[in-house]
Structure formats: C-alpha cells, structure tokens
Design a protein around this nucleic acid. Sequence first.
DNA 1: CCGCATCCTCATGGATACTG
DNA 2: CAGTATCCATGAGGATGCGG
Lengths: 211, 211
Amino acid sequence: MSRSYGQYCGLARALDVVGDRWNLLIVRQLLMSPARYRELRDGLPGVATNLLADRLRDLETAGVIERRLAEEGNAVVYALTPWGAGLREPVEGLIRWSTPLMIRGPGGDHFRAEWLVLPLSTLLADRTATRRPWRVGVGVDDGLVLVRTSHSGVEAGPHDGGDLDAVVRADAQIVLGLAAGVLALDDVRGLVDIEGDEAAVRAVFNSPTRS
Amino acid sequence: MSRSYGQYCGLARALDVVGDRWNLLIVRQLLMSPARYRELRDGLPGVATNLLADRLRDLETAGVIERRLAEEGNAVVYALTPWGAGLREPVEGLIRWSTPLMIRGPGGDHFRAEWLVLPLSTLLADRTATRRPWRVGVGVDDGLVLVRTSHSGVEAGPHDGGDLDAVVRADAQIVLGLAAGVLALDDVRGLVDIEGDEAAVRAVFNSPTRS
DNA sequence: CCGCATCCTCATGGATACTG
DNA sequence: CAGTATCCATGAGGATGCGG
C-alpha cells in the first residue's frame, strides 16, 4: 500500500484506500460484475500482473473487495463488498466529468465494449423512459451492451443474451456523443447502423432528459 | 505528468488528469476558495514543494485550474476553471464514501478546520432548513466553519466574519459524527460546547434529513 | 492453463537546499 | 514568496518462473 497522506480529511482517507494507481479501475471492472483474476487482467490492459495481485490484496484488506469461491468449486472470484459498491457514485461522477475528454475520440487508446456500461448507465439514467418497455443492444466492435428501461428510467449492463427490440452499431465515440447529448441521432445517420425497432433506438438516444 | 492508462474509458481518462498523487487534494483546497501558492502549501501538509509546483502546472495544462492575477496586482492566485469545479460532485462522493474511515477518529493525522467545509456541505446539504434562516459557526481547534441555511437547504463554507446566531465547539470526530447522523447531539452533550442560540445548533445537527 | 511471486530496470515521489 | 534544482527512496512496468 502506498504512503498515507496522514490527513484527517475524508477525501485524503478515501484516496489512501483507492487512490493508488489501478485501484479505481479495478473497482470499475467489479462494478460491472464480479470477475476472476484472468478476467480482471484482460479488462485492464497495461496492468502488470504483480501490481494486480498487490492491489487486490490491498483492496481486500481495506474491505473494498472480497474473494469468493465460484460456483464451480475451487475458482476464486473477486467481488465488491457493500461498502466497495458505494464507490459507484464517485466513479460515475468522474465518468460524467470526463465527457469532454471522451468526445475527442479514442486516439490510440485501448478499447473494450464493456467500458461503455458505466457511462451509458450514468449518462442515460435520468432520461424519461417511454411508455412501453424496451431492450436495445448497443454494439461497438465485437461487443454488445444492453440498454433497457427500468422502473425509474434507463439502465445499462452487460448483454444477458435475452431478446432485444433493436440493435444499434456505431463507433464508441459516437455512442458516447449520443448518450451525452452532444450528438443527435439524425446528425450521424450514415455512421450508425440500426436493426430492428428504430423507435426503441430513438427512445434511448433522443428522449428528453428529465433534468 | 504521469503515465497514461491508454484506455478509451471515461474513468481512466479522468484519472489520467486528476489521478496523480496530490491532484485531488489540490482540487479540494480550491473547491473551498481560490488560493495562493503558500496557502495551498499550508493546506496540504506533507506535500513537497516541487511536487506542488509540478501538479499545478499539470492541472493548468489540462484545463482544471488557472492562474489569475490577484487584486493586489502582481500576486498569482490559483483557481478552478468551470470544468475543474465540476469535480465537486465526485469529490463529495468520495467524502461521503469515506465516512466509515472518518468516524474512527483522527489518530495521529494532521487536521485543519477548513477540511470540515466540504464534508459539512455534502453531509448536511439535504437537511431541511428551518423556517427562519440561521448562521452557525462550527468550531474545532482554532478554526471556525460557517454553516447556514440557503435557498435549498443547508450550506457550509469558510467563516466570512459576519454575525452568527450560535457557535458550536467540539472535536472534529464528533462534528463529523453529528453531521453524518452517526451521533445524536444529546448523546455527546458533555463533549460539545454551545454558545448562543441552541435551537439553531439543533437545526444544524438534529433536523430530519430530506432523504 | 490459472493465479500469483520474483527479479530487474527505470520513472515517480519525497525531503531538503537553493535561487530569482 | 514562489517556485527550481538536486539527490535518494520507492513504486510502476515488463519479463519470467513456478506451484496447483
């Protein structure tokens, strides 16, 4: 664990726990779903394997994550504790704050479709859901993210294999621009591929924000 | 500037900008008020002066902070840009998340009364304000933090020298426990010193949360 | 294979002295 | 006062090893 700030301040103590490099990205992965060591390593391109092991130990000691035994028996699965799951708010706050950094496009950075789950969740959460419920797949590269109506608005998550009313495919940059309201669907028609119920797709990206 | 994560992910890009050690603590200081170099150094015990200078440069380059000329003429003052001020949400989220780390008490850590401003702001913000407006000073050590009613609830900030309806003095740990709702005022009567209008103090710490 | 531990190199952080 | 310059300790990154 890195050096403590030694300050009796909530932010400093929070950063003593999750401020070290890679820690919040590990939390990001686990906010989507519990995962095995290898899955974490795959979802965190660039992490050194010894650092990942170190950080998992630190976070477990601090009570942010816990090791569970997978259903298959002896496999270890890492998951957030209830307290660790409380990091969703500040993490989503940082994601919303980062919008200006994302609409510039990916540059040469790594990208994984699953990384759209949290941004879509938080950017679409306060959209008013339409009358009839829908489930839409948002596809980038080879991945598919599920966006659907929920009791209180719109939710995103990993694709669960269930039926979809529609599938939208576009570059990640465009998907984020649409979700953030920086782009309108009609402005990028040629860059977006829509299959299925177009009305459902419009409900995702063009419905007014509750504000 | 530290090594980039190289991930096209909002959280990773946000941390590329503010994830380096000390960066968010500098933002914490500037969320309270613009400050000069020396004030930042004083408010960040433990920071090395070269690191502070480095970080201020990085944050300015990234567009999080800006250098301003003070009213007195040639003095430089650091302040958040509008985008940088948008970090208030995730920072307050981390502060709320850190409550379990704070109610354990200060241990041997440094403490400054001004560090209560952000926690009091975010922990009391959704308390319903009483009918008549009040201004209460919360005192720890030698410092005094202002808590007052606002149009939409309760606000905290640096003491502005104006008249106060009451002053409460207690240890920082107790103040935070009261604000977080972990302690009730009557449970710690002997440890809290109240001057002035006690009803105003009760309005700060005992009014029901809006939930 | 998966889940780490070890080793080595180099970038970053920390403490202090120094300068315009 | 507002930073630079310097030096040393520490942590990150990458390759590889190793037991289950």
